[in-house]
């Protein structure tokens, strides 16, 4: 597989970026996220979190067994500051 394949479309994180992060100490999905910004873009990981978990599970089977799973945080949909402030 080519290492230039993009995994996280929003932040343009490639397989190579994940590899680099892994080899410099990021060994769970959450650590990979912090290091590479994968799953942290505009879609909030709706597209790539499965891929990051899958990739991590392949690299480090222990990482996918409930240790530091990726979380979901509100707002889970884009809103404007106006909407947050309760404006029409």
């Amino acid at each position: 597989m080519s290492n230039s394949i993009i995994v996280c479309r929003c932040e343009e994180v490639t397989v190579e970026n994940l590899e680099d992060a892994y080899h410099t100490g990021a060994i769970t999905s959450r650590q990979i996220k912090m290091k590479t910004r994968a799953t942290m873009g505009a879609c909030q990981g709706r597209v790539c979190r499965n891929l990051v978990d899958l990739w991590m599970g392949n690299k480090n089977p222990l990482a996918s067994k409930g240790v530091e799973q990726l979380s979901y945080r509100p707002p889970v949909r884009p809103i404007t500051f106006g909407e947050l402030a309760g404006e029409e």
Binding site: R9, C43, R46, R77
Partner: peptide, 17 residues
């Protein structure tokens, strides 16, 4: 960031592309 071209991907509001 990169300026790469993007289009419709999921069509139901999930992907933000």
């Amino acid at each position: 960031e990169s300026g790469s071209n993007r289009g419709l991907y999921c069509a139901i509001g999930h992907c933000m592309e």
